[in-house]
Amino acid sequence: MAQRERVTTERMDRDAVSAAWPGLADPAHDSQRLFRQILGAMSEPGTLATLAVPAPPSDALGAALWGVVLTLCDLETRVWVAADLDSPALRQALAFHTGARITDDPASADFALLTHDAFDPQTPFAPGSDTYPDRATTLLVVVERLANAGPSMLSGPGIETIRALDIGDSPGCRALMDRLAANRASFPQGLDMIFGCGARLAAVPRSTRVRRADAKEVN
């Protein structure tokens, strides 16, 4: 009897989680569609995509990054969650929808969920090694805004000439772009970032050269 009660409670919890934190209605086709948008964003850095994903209850994360999590995370991945996004509901939803393991160690994370406010350049995310640069953390970052304007100019693979990207003016946003600019010096080691703002998404991988239009080029 006691066991049955526990099962019932668990099921109620699960139903509550899936209702509050929606998954993909048609996992095979929805994740394929989302992946192609993410692949497009990563292969053409700075281009903006709008992801059709059911919005999570927490505005802090945003639909686009929740879509990335649902598309890419599973029980083979470790996810690091910054304190300002962390909540029991998010942890439960991650476990329920993806089975991903939450880690406290940023260096062992495949994906890191954070907001621009919480970005600290000192956080030791994995940059990969020179022999295995692919073993690096992908940062999924909530940013202030996403627009193809502003002071940050991107060039390199995936960009025909040059592309402007504006993620916001906060100290965190500036630190993120500075961190991306520093990728070149350590290439092939580096951090790849996917930015989300509501349902909008853009990506900047480590291969991209980032410079501020108002700054001199530093090599």
């Binding site: 993410i38 692949l39 990563m42 083979e76 692919d134 995936g158 790849d192 991988p205 291969s207």
Partner: peptide, 23 residues
């Protein structure tokens, strides 16, 4: 789907590091 996700994650890293062979 599990296999596809594994390959998709590898593809994103392959795109991020052009020319590098991702296992």
């Amino acid at each position: 789907e599990q296999t596809k996700r594994m390959i998709r994650r590898a593809l994103l890293k392959a795109v991020a590091i052009p020319g590098y062979q991702v296992p």
